Computed example of a mutant assay.
Amino acid sequence: MRIIFEYKKNQYFFNNKILSINNEKSHKIGDILKVNKILLLHNEENILIGFPYIKTTFFFKIIKITKKKKKSLKFKKRKRYRKYFGYYLKKTFIKII
């Protein structure tokens, strides 16, 4: 089963595997996401295309939340000036129930 859905103004493609989405602060492991903005639903037999959305609801369960730090360096030679800046990239992995 393949699904293209919209969640918080972003579109995602789900293909029977684990999907990673951008993390929100409100997400916790074990929470259930309700997605009702389905753009395309493809089974082995038929394809349903929404205009604009299909009237179905899917539930996804949050499996894992990761946090990865992206770090950059600003450097000026001969001035002894270094500045580190960056952010934590948070990803949430979901699976269909």
Rank of each mutant, 00 (worst) to 15 (best):
K76H: 10
D31I: 06
Y84V: 14
N36K: 13
I4H: 02
E45V: 06
N43Q: 03
F5D: 00
Y88K: 07
I47Q: 04
I49G: 06
F85V: 06
F51L: 12
I21Y: 02
F60K: 07
V35H: 05
N23L: 08
N16P: 00
I38S: 14
E45R: 06
I54G: 02
N23G: 15
K64M: 09
K90L: 12
K37T: 14
I63L: 11
R2L: 06
Y87M: 07
F13Y: 07
I97H: 05
E6K: 08
R2G: 00
L19Y: 02
N15R: 04
I18G: 04
N43P: 00
K71A: 08
K34F: 06
I3N: 00
K70M: 12
K90H: 11
K95P: 01
T56E: 14
K90Q: 12
K34G: 01
K91C: 01
L89N: 14
N22W: 05
I49E: 06
N15A: 06
R80F: 14
L41K: 14
L41D: 15
R82A: 04
K37G: 04
I97P: 00
L41W: 07
Y7N: 03
K91M: 02
R2W: 03
E45M: 05
N43F: 04
N36Y: 09
F85K: 08
K55F: 09
N22H: 11
Y88G: 01
Y88M: 02
S20M: 03
F13Q: 05
K68Y: 14
K28T: 14
F93D: 04
I18N: 09
K70P: 01
I18S: 08
I94F: 07
F58C: 08
S72P: 00
E44Y: 12
K77R: 11
V35I: 15
K76E: 06
K17M: 01
K67P: 00
S26Y: 15
Y81I: 13
K70T: 15
T57K: 13
K37R: 15
F59D: 02
K90N: 13
K28W: 09
R2P: 00
K34W: 02
L19C: 10
E44N: 13
N36Q: 13
S20A: 08
L73N: 13
I94H: 06
K74W: 14
E45H: 06
K69G: 03
T56V: 01
G50D: 01
K77A: 12
F51K: 13
L33Q: 10
G30L: 07
N23E: 11
K9H: 13
E24T: 12
K55I: 05
T66A: 03
K91Y: 12
I49A: 05
N16L: 04
K70H: 13
F58I: 03
G86E: 09
I94Y: 05
N16M: 08
K28P: 02
E6M: 09
H27I: 12
K70C: 09
K74I: 09
F93N: 06
L33D: 12
Y12D: 06
